[in-house]
Amino acid sequence: MTLRGRRGLTPYLLLLPGVAFLAAFFLVPLYYLFNTSLQEGTFTTTFTWAWENYSDAIGQFDEQFVRSLKYAGIATALALGISYPLAYWIAVRGGRWKNLLLLFIIAPFFVTYLIRTLAWLTILSDDGFVVDVLQTVGILSDDGRLLATSTAVVAGITYNFLPFMALPLYVSIEQIDGRLIEAAQDLYASRARAFLRVTLPLSLPGVFAGTLLTFIPAVGDFINAQLLGAPGQYMIGNVIQSRFLQLGEYGQAAALSFVVMGAVLVLMLIYAKVLGSERLTGAGI
């Protein structure tokens, strides 16, 4: 009895530091943010209760909302498309260079986010190499440009969040037992079929984790849209930033933050349901 009692308590005690941390630095601020989201006014006027912050938030900025989801979705898909072959190759063919290759993926993180984004101003410059090539092959018109377009914003987001996709993918592919693939081939599966039936399903936990890690921060990003985009590319993060810091409309900004949080949560739940996250997380990410 005592033994069972203690055993029952231990996991909770072990959880305590984590839970306390979450409570102090996530739940409490979240509560204050929620409180703020129900108030209206700026510091020069006074604050009054305003439930309509939420309806305003959705009604006024639906355009930026949809745009954020769209850009983040495209960027996540691109990151997945680029990262999968990359991670696969490193995991399967990397050999003794694995660690070095992984270091290359993380290397951009040694530089500040902002600097990395500003570098794209040079890469995509009107007189730069990329625009030149695209104009020569006719993809861009002669007076076309990449900067201040949605292409630049999506490219910036994809680049900035790529490592978040590549690393979990690498881990899950690397863990796959090679004998399973051999077994599939012994049973006359073609290489493509073995990949589709064995490797791909077993790497899904990595896809799942990478997608979340990329998509969620990408939805709230505003730096890429601000530096690489024009007003027509502004995302919901830009709106929240300007409400908070330029207009001092904390209520609306907080309400918008909650709407974003809610939307992302719902999307993630649907995604998890479709992919079957229980099985995935059970598979051990």
């Binding site: 700026t42 020069t44 006027t45 930026q64 024009a230 007003p231 027509g232 590319q233 502004y234 830009n238 709106v239 930033q241 300007s242 330029q246 207009l247």
Partner: peptide, 13 residues
């Protein structure tokens, strides 16, 4: 505040 909002709307945010 009204002007500020109009201007921010012009900026797309």
């Amino acid at each position: 505040d009204g002007y500020k909002s109009k201007f921010q709307a012009l900026l797309g945010a």
